[in-house]
């Protein structure tokens, strides 16, 4: 399946502004950063969680603990997907019991990744509350889930692919919509 870039929907500056706004929203909703953890879903959720934490550190003068969650072993679509991701490591800053955890991911689509992440997270202990922050919500949910904090809502077709590129993983910051070449909608 060949993909062609259709449009850049978020450039580096817009991404920074979106993350900055989201970090304020999280802190406002939570009334501070005490008892708050940011847990990134591997891989691109992790650098996004770090950036949200860096924003919060700048205006709250406190370091929010960051966790990394690998959900490979919780996926329900392993045998149907073509890519076979390497099983990564899950690392938490401590015992999640009693914490408010903001799960961070790059794109919210069917909701299956988040479903797997919720299972993975709850297996580690019972947090007080779990919220969800995503850079892009592209719709087409297959599960009854929604995000608490969204960088940008983007209406998409199922034939399109949303690619989030980050400095840490891809060398630059941008979000692009890719379309299949020759596909009929």
């Amino acid at each position: 399946m060949a993909l062609r870039q259709k449009a850049v929907i978020l450039d580096a500056d817009a991404m920074t502004r979106a993350l900055r706004r989201m970090s304020h929203e999280v802190v406002e909703r939570h009334g501070g950063v005490s008892g708050l953890w940011l847990v990134g879903i591997r891989r691109r959720g992790v650098p996004l969680a770090q950036r949200l934490a860096a924003e919060m550190a700048a205006f709250e003068r406190a370091q929010v603990p960051i966790g990394e969650l690998d959900i490979t072993l919780y996926r329900d679509d392993l045998t149907t997907s073509h890519e076979r991701p390497q099983v990564g490591r899950t690392q938490m800053p401590g015992d999640p019991r009693g914490k408010t955890i903001v799960l961070v991911d790059d794109v919210l689509y069917t909701g299956r990744t988040v479903r797997a992440a919720l299972d993975a997270l709850i297996d580690l202990g019972r947090p007080k509350q779990i919220q969800l922050a995503v850079l892009i919500d592209r719709g087409h949910r297959e599960l009854p889930l929604r995000a608490d904090f969204v960088g940008k809502n983007v209406p998409t077709s199922r034939l399109e692919v949303v690619e989030v590129r980050l400095r840490e993983t891809d060398g630059r910051d941008e979000v692009a919509i890719m379309e299949q070449v020759g596909a009929t909608p």
């Binding site: 329900d76 679509d77 392993l78 045998t79 149907t80 076979r84």
Partner: peptide, 9 residues
Amino acid sequence: LESEGAEGA
């Protein structure tokens, strides 16, 4: 086993 069989989705 993760590459065996097609069910599980």
